[in-house]
């Protein structure tokens, strides 16, 4: 499939890169002219996926996290991949409030937030082989003309640019 735009990032699995990852995703999504709320949703979902890769996938040890950002029409497709320990029981891992790391004060809400903030989340994982999280979201464009805008255009507004 040919995407409209595509960016790949590989970064060290270090917690200070969480901010970089979500800002890169926001910068990428910004070209789709999204509403601010959608941008926040994407940043939050990416932050959750990258945090999981670092603290669960690599258990805070060295490794690389791979992120791809793709767009097709109004849809944004994000993957976050680690080559860490993988997830043995996916269903359990995705259960709200379940966490394998209560000592780190994890809330167990990561996957729930990804699923709530994005349209579609798919997790592929194998023990010892790592995890890939693919998330999709169709962006509500800020510039999309609403009925309200059209009314004003019809009344002699600025019209199409």
């Amino acid at each position: 499939m040919i995407y409209d735009n595509e960016v790949s990032i590989s970064m060290s699995a270090r917690s200070q890169n969480e901010a970089f990852a979500r800002m890169a995703a926001a910068a990428f999504a910004a070209s789709l002219d999204p509403l601010l709320g959608d941008l926040t949703d994407i940043k939050t979902a990416v932050s959750e996926a990258v945090t999981n890769a670092i603290i669960h996938g690599y258990e805070n040890k060295d490794g690389l996290v791979f992120i791809t950002l793709r767009s097709y029409g109004a849809e944004i497709i994000i993957t976050v991949t680690d080559e860490g320990v993988g997830i043995e029981d996916l269903e359990q891992a995705m259960t709200p409030l379940y966490t394998s790391k209560p000592e780190l004060e994890r809330s167990g809400m990561g996957f729930t937030i990804m699923e709530t903030f994005m349209d579609h989340v798919q997790v592929t994982s194998a023990p010892g082989r790592g995890t890939t999280v693919e998330m999709r979201k169709t962006i509500a464009r800020q510039g999309r003309k609403s009925d309200f805008d059209c009314l004003f255009t019809g009344l002699g507004g600025a019209g199409e640019r």
């Binding site: 939050t44 945090t51 809330s107 809400m109």
Partner: peptide, 13 residues
């Protein structure tokens, strides 16, 4: 300006 689920864990703790 931004908080993810780490903030939830922080507040509950």
């Amino acid at each position: 300006a931004f908080m993810d689920s780490s903030g939830i864990g922080l507040l509950i703790g």
